[in-house]
Write a protein that binds this DNA or RNA. Structure first.
Lengths: 167, 167
DNA sequence: TCGAGATTATCAACAACATTAAGTATATCA
DNA sequence: TGATATACTTAATGTTGTTGATAATCTCGA
């Protein structure tokens, strides 16, 4: 547990934790912006919510309930309806009915959707490798371990945020 | 020497670089989603583009040209016009004329805007500390160094992307 | 000094999302 | 059966992103 000084509470602080926070947020913003432009390529023509929604379908083996998909991708149910509409129009995903509970709508990725995701991941890998090319193997392994732990922490915060709002 | 299977070459590969790429993109998406919800709090009522625009004004000491602001925040000039409109309505930023070149519009953050940014940074720090609380000091320093290098690499890719599109 | 061409920012029209509240269909259970 | 809960969609409004056109201003050569 890191100790917190009074200065950190009152003024601007400049502890390493805040620097990490700033670096992470800046990376997040830039990465999403870069990726948005990549997805806008005529080969793909996807938006960020469309991509992350399709990606979750691609990664989850079986079909996926709307409400689970909304929680996994951190979108509201109302937004997701429109996103899935557009994925279905493009024939990248399909809606099905749950056999026993007809209220539920199940979504699956189509073969065409799988292909597209694979192409996008390939393009993104090239883009990212350019950004990470100056890291040596040792750094890569270390960074990966640390990022996994950050991700774990963020997921945990999100879970807690479900019911009671943090902050 | 680790051997490379045929699967890694043809299908999804699973090298550490790709894992970093995936972890980074997932963190970016979640971080932006979390932060979007935080900014939606009644205390702030900002959107992500509004925040990052205001943040850049806050961090750059002097007033800022529209085109420079657009490049720094990675938004199109047309989008930025609307964003600055809304910041000005909320009295968080102001437009000025460049004295000698009257085509240019200079933007500055107001004292009210500075206060708001400070409050948001404080709230975000608390949120982020919850996510990073399980990292020990040593990890924090290491992670920071690595993130800085990632950021550097991404900025460099962005610069090159100005003229010729990557990927 | 005048006018052609650049530069800078804005506008207009449209699609995609986010949010909120209301609505519809289905399930559950007393 | 009827009340209530659940799962999803719809509708209304605001913000952002894209593209192409427009307006204002500057620069520079004739």
């Amino acid at each position: 547990m890191t100790s917190v000084t009074r200065e950190q509470l009152t003024t601007g602080e400049r502890g390493p934790l805040e620097e990490i926070e700033q670096a992470l947020m800046q990376i997040s913003w830039l990465a999403q912006r870069q990726f948005m432009q990549l997805l806008d390529d005529e080969r793909f023509r996807l938006t960020l919510p469309q991509f992350y929604t399709l990606l979750h379908l691609y990664q989850s083996a079986a079909e996926c309930k709307m409400s689970d998909l909304a929680e996994a991708t951190q979108q509201s149910a109302a937004s997701l309806t429109g996103v899935v509409d557009r994925l279905a129009e493009k024939q990248l995903a399909e809606r099905k009915r749950h056999p026993s509970d007809r209220r539920q709508v199940m979504v699956v990725v189509t073969p065409r959707g799988c292909e597209l995701i694979a192409e996008i991941k390939q393009a993104r890998r090239e883009q990212m490798q350019a950004a990470l090319s100056h890291l040596v193997d040792q750094d890569v392994d270390l960074l990966l371990q640390l990022l996994d732990r950050v991700l774990l922490g963020m997921a945990r915060v999100l879970e807690r945020g479900e019911s009671g709002r943090w902050a």
